[in-house]
Design a binder for these strands. Structure first.
Lengths: 339, 339
DNA sequence: GCGCATAACGACACCGGTGTCAAAGCTGTT
DNA sequence: AACAGCTTTGACACCGGTGTCGTTATGCGC
């Protein structure tokens, strides 16, 4: 009789069902070579005893564990959290668990820290969020250590097997299309920080779109920031202080766009009546700022789910998709220019 | 000779060092009954081979694992993320890892989902964030399942061993003190949702502080929301539409305070010149909204660290603290009233 | 040199699963 | 009835650690 005070083990199940533990193991692992009758009997006992296989023991025996890691350097809290939820959609009711690991991109020990983390935890694989997903040394480290990985990103960072991306570039074009359709011609950009693939992609999409519409980009219509709120203020101020200020500003993320709102308000410039502003990412601030901001939303949860499947179950159809469509979210920060 | 292509095991170390695996185990676990000479020798081999103990094997042998879970129903992305970082401060360079589990408070299966999660993963313990930390059934579930737990909260939810809290109530008093010091007497509150301990605490702190200053709280000066942005707008509109509107509004969180900003702006009421607003939590929106919002900040990272230590190393001094001081962050959303 | 307590180490079972391979059960042929 | 060939099951070793307890050094008093 199994001790009720302890969690039942595979041995308890085997004993009660009158079969060998290996047979129970086969039931757990859905082995096809079992007689239906035996399977049913064992499943009955499993249910009766409330048996759950011990993941540590399975991990040990199978030489692989069921932990998937999330490596990120907090680009944006909401994004990280949505990503976590998306991964959970994929691993719900499996034995997989999601282990998080915020890292410090600026630390000189970052790679060593991560190496040590991977060595200690021996993860099944890791999911890497931008911007550190752009670090090729990190991807190499994963390969060296035999750790599976999938990088999230905005551009061809890796082969399909290791990458889930959004089509930022095309989507920036739709932003510019939208602005042009509203009558804007003097459109400025606030670029993201150098060295960020996403910043580069968005800037290139901007240039391509402007060119498509036959619009000039004078040097003074190019601002740059570091993706943070404050840098958006500074960049927007510069843009607005030129002789021939833009009628619309495209900021490479929402935080900086919010900074542009701030700069405009400080100068008594009304958004959107006197200045249109569009952001990118659809972070919470975009919905909450006044007026609500037109921006670009990417399907982070779906992307996370796909990334997780790529890691744990590459045959799942959801793992096939590598590029996800971002889409324009029209709110109230764009209007026709006055002049 | 250990196979270089595989990760070295304790047996490899034992063989190379010429000792038994048990001795290597003793070195790993810092057993005091080892000769210094042996210890040094084994440590040398460990370093040479780059050996790391397999956490799954240890978990299996010791009957406890090294996974600590984070249960939350996204109160606020930044809070959750900061909490994760705080936990990481505590478990860095230990074999512990942080497993996240967002849950859905409104789902009728929430408890079953969590039970299943705990059964599958057999966590060392869990950390529970508000608002679900206030769910006593959840705490009971943890106890039943023999899973350690620490609840984060704003009020005496549990005994010290299982609780880390902030002194919201006192801090609300300092908010009111601040408003009164600025000359306000007609102060309204936007309460949080019923059933939230934090909401209750903040409302009680408000009532106490008003009483302390000999100020009335007319029924029409009590608004309520659900901690979300939109509900803040609605509540503030009601407050402002009364015959004798308040000169200051204390909102029980920043989101709702931001909603109050919105409502004011929509009516052409300037913040802070015509209306002062104070929030709570110091979420990013507080710093980014215009004008920057005066609010209350609580030391989430430190609290997280303490909670983690309570779980994994109760003797650590950091685990002793149960109540952490929140503090007023003065920015620009409070000014003297006009009348 | 001997007895004895104590310090240091090792042999072996065990944690709870899986992999391998042989054995048992069942079918259909001859 | 005997046998081949397949399906179904079980015995046993193994994954990489730790716990228990016995065995072997070491030091000490006499």
């Amino acid at each position: 009789m199994p001790d009720a005070s302890q969690k039942p083990t595979i041995n308890d199940v085997a004993r009660v069902a009158g079969v060998s533990k290996k047979t129970v193991s086969r039931v757990i692992n859905r082995s096809p070579l079992l007689k239906q009758e035996t399977r049913t009997k064992v499943e009955g006992v499993i249910a009766e005893l409330g048996y759950r296989p011990n993941p540590q023991a399975r991990a040990l025996a199978m030489g692989r564990n069921f932990l998937i890691g999330l490596l990120h350097d907090n680009p944006n809290a909401q994004t990280v959290l949505n990503f976590q939820v998306g991964v959970l959609d994929a691993i719900r009711d499996t034995e997989f668990a999601l282990v998080v690991r915020p890292v410090d991109r600026r630390s000189p020990h970052m790679l060593d820290d991560i190496r040590s983390f991977l060595e200690i935890q021996r993860l099944f694989g890791v999911l890497i969020l931008p911007p550190i997903s752009e670090n090729d040394d990190l991807a190499r480290l994963c390969r060296e250590m035999g750790c599976g990985y999938v990088r999230m990103g905005s551009a061809r960072l890796d082969d399909d097997e290791h990458l889930v991306q959004s089509n930022d570039r095309e989507c920036v074009e739709s932003v510019i299309d939208h602005l042009v359709a509203n009558g804007h011609r003097r459109i400025a950009i606030i670029k993201g920080p150098d060295g960020f693939r996403s910043a580069q992609e968005r800037a290139e999409g901007f240039a391509a779109a402007m060119k498509k519409h036959g619009l000039e980009i004078p040097p003074e219509a190019i601002g740059s920031g570091n993706y943070r709120f404050d840098s958006g203020i500074v960049a927007a101020e510069k843009l607005l202080d030129t002789d021939n200020p833009p009628t619309a500003i495209f900021a490479s993320n929402d935080e900086m766009a919010a900074g542009a709102f701030h700069a405009a308000l400080a100068r008594g410039i009304d958004v959107p009546a006197q200045l249109s502003v569009v952001g990118f990412d659809d972070s919470p601030i975009a919905a909450h700022i006044l007026p609500p901001m037109t921006t670009v939303s990417w399907p982070i949860r779906e992307m996370a789910k796909s990334a997780a499947f790529k890691l744990i179950e590459p045959t799942n159809p959801a793992a096939g998709l590598s590029t996800f469509p971002a889409r324009l979210v029209v709110r109230n920060s764009v209007a026709a220019p006055r002049d």
